[in-house]
Amino acid sequence: MNDLPTSGDEPGSGYEPHPGVDRKLLEILVCPLTKGPLIYDAARQELISKQAGLAYPIRDGIPIMLVDEARSLNDEDFLK
């Protein structure tokens, strides 16, 4: 059983995804804390949850939907 072949292509070979965040994700993601809507800030590469007062970073096209990693919003953010 432990001699099973591992799956075919090794990640990293060939395909390199486009740098931006995938549109499909923007359609389904919500704030993990409030389950409320997120605003996509393309310039800062963040997903902003006004209800929770948090901005979740997008790194290399991957939204990091962890409160641990989120930035607390300041007054400026709310004025936007």
Partner: peptide
């Protein structure tokens, strides 16, 4: 995306 299954960020 990165998510915690205990706090699923999906609508």
């Amino acid at each position: 995306f990165v998510a915690d299954e205990e706090w699923l960020p999906v609508n």
